[in-house]
Design a protein around this nucleic acid. Sequence first.
RNA 1: GCCCCCAUCGUCUAGUGGCCUAGGACACUUCCCUUUCACGGAGGCGACACGAGUUCGAAUCUCGUUGGGGGUACCA
Length: 491
Amino acid sequence: MFESGLRLRIPPSPTGSLHLGTARTALYNWLLAKRFKGTFVFRLEDTDRERSKSEFVTDIIEGFKWLGIDWNEGPLRQSEHKARHQMVVNQLLENNLAYECFCSSEELEQIRISQRALNKVEGYDNRHRNLTKQEKDNFRAEGRKPVIRFKLLNKAEITWTDLVRGKMSVNASDLGGDPVIAKDNGDVLYNFAVVVDDHDSAINCVIRGEDHLHNTAKQIPIYEAMQWEIPQFAHVPLILTANREKLSKRKHGDIASISNYLKAGYLPEAINNYLIAMSWQFPSDDHKEVFSKEEAVLHFDLKDLSKSAAIYDPLKLNWFCKEHFQRLSAEEVLTRAKTGGFLEALNNLKEYSPDEQLKIISLMKDGLIKLNDLSNPASAANLLVFCQAPNLQDLKEEAENCLREPEAKIVLSELNNLLETLADLNPEIVQKLLADLAAKTGLKKGKKLFWPIRVVISGNIHGADLVALLSILNKNRLQERVKEALKYLEM
RNA sequence: GCCCCCAUCGUCUAGUGGCCUAGGACACUUCCCUUUCACGGAGGCGACACGAGUUCGAAUCUCGUUGGGGGUACCA
């Protein structure tokens, strides 16, 4: 199908930070480019001068890098192709395939209102298609500046075979009139610029969101007018929120922006996995769910994409996160946490040797969702227990109650006594320590025996394996916290 | 309003006319493991939107209805 070589592109607009949906479209492009050894072009769609910002350019590039989505050409900037765009506009004008339209926005609005009243397609009624020179001069004399409109041939059936959806067809008369391709200030518009740029980059396969379906219908006639080869099109399904609306940067910025995931310490491999799996399934017999984008490359094909929109499910994302954390070595997690700055709030972690730090990470990483959780008190995977004594004045009710049990005091003072006889702790010693403690207190095991210890070290009745916890914490910290608690209970 | 797209458990999906009393995953839930939580293991709950066709036979094909989404800019 692509004898000359597959050429794909991703054209984000730097009017906002990298969007989850853009990342997913980029991923599908990337997957296909890798699979069929194509060329992937990265272009910044920055023709909207007011809304485009350089900080967003940085954000988008950083986002792609973080996800591991690389490209072969670019970043190209649409704004740098102005002269070329102007040239094509003129060519269209000369060939009578485009024309000047002097309608004011008020007139346009009037046209829409009357069309709507008649249950017709809203849009422009092409009234300035055949203006005489005299009429144009009159408008100019009024001080009106024209926009340039492209002549859509009415009634023409615009068809293409979509690589995801199959045969598609839109009637040109349903497109809302001749589209504006250049504003009255000369700036060209998206639907035009994208055609010129894609053609100039020899793009032969356009993968984009389903929200572009009508744009494709508007763009194909431009290719035809210029006698340019029309690329293949593939419209991928959208990502919807839980209440079934298109995921938008404005309304759902927190979950829509890739940079938020980066900052929170999500694993890019988990994001990629989730994004790909949203509309695509690993084809092998086991239909495995957890995979890398590199594994997906081996099997990915547009025809296997789902046609229906997918609803963003944070719980499922979390699951992918856990799965990918479990697959990472403790060394890797520690490195990423350090380089990402996620350990900075955990000052005292430096007191532990590198080897101890690894033990800490491997003890905690299985329930990890994002690196942020390492220092988040609300997370079960936080490392706070290793870094600071709990604030006993401010315990949760269940923890406070546990400490107020009469047995708690006995357990703690016996523990304190036993600790006096010990030097450094290790798992074997802790094992024995707890057994001795059980014997001394007469409490076999269970809540009465272990929960007070947990509360004293972490402020929580739940947590990671106690033996591992205590042996890493070691004698001094443990004893300190036990004494502190005994003091607190005396008050 | 008009145009287009989509339609299997709450969610993501497998399923391309008989292997389907519809399979998997997330979530939820029961039990087991465990000194707690988590992990892990074994179960459970739970769907072919509806109505007509076509066919010996339909989740799968056709039409209609309904529902959902997107689009409808001198934004991208």
